[in-house]
Amino acid sequence: MADRPKVGFFSFTGCEGCQLVVLSMADRLLELLGAVEVVNFREASSYKCDDYDIAIVEGAISRVREITELIEIRKRAGTLIALGACAHVGGINCMRNFANQFEIKKEVYGDKASNFDSFLAQPLDAIVKVDHYARGCPPSRDGEEFLEIVVALMQGKRPYIPNYPVCVHCKMKGNVCVFHKERPIACLGPVTRAGCMAACPSFGNACIGCRGLAGKPNLNAHQQTMEEAGLTPEETMKFYRMLNGMMEVGK
């Protein structure tokens, strides 16, 4: 192969768990390091460099400084990949967007609240163009999908990302639908994009929608299903907002 593409990892508002998932891929990561040159990766190295072809960005945007940094990254990178739910849809940070901003800052920072410029959390693509999304909280299939995206990019190929709902894989796994369990559980699977191999329902839990909405989600139908499962429209909305508060952005 010609020159290995230079890759930089960047982190904004989030738990930085997405970078940890990439790090924990162990032998798969070593393969990746043979194919690309990592020039920026805070979780793994203090070395920093501003010359990169592919930027892999995790976290949501919630401070002024982050906006300018993200725009700078976008300018330098030929390709920008959003890594994880916070970068993709804003993730759990967006729960703050539906609370009183003064009170919530006070709760977190106490009497120092006015020293922080944090504002409504945004997904990356509210600020810049994002080329690819490695979805999930944390990135799906222990980072395998992220790796597939990088490989597709190196091949000059469009990565294969399903646009259908989680139910497809949940059925392939032979799971008893969580809505049909002896004690039914309300689930976001029917409107959430597949690709995680139905990770949470396979362990008997509800899908919480960490991969964002499916291609053309039928939200009206879902409202009805959730009502049949005993949830009020308000409760359903709260469930959506756990990770997909900014879904109105639409993607």
């Binding site: 259908y164 709902p165 139910c167 059925k171 053309k216 009206n220 139908a221």
Partner: peptide, 13 residues
């Protein structure tokens, strides 16, 4: 069709 999720569950099973 209006009530369909397009979730493919029917196909899978």
């Amino acid at each position: 069709g209006e009530k369909c999720y397009g979730c493919g569950s029917c196909n899978m099973v």
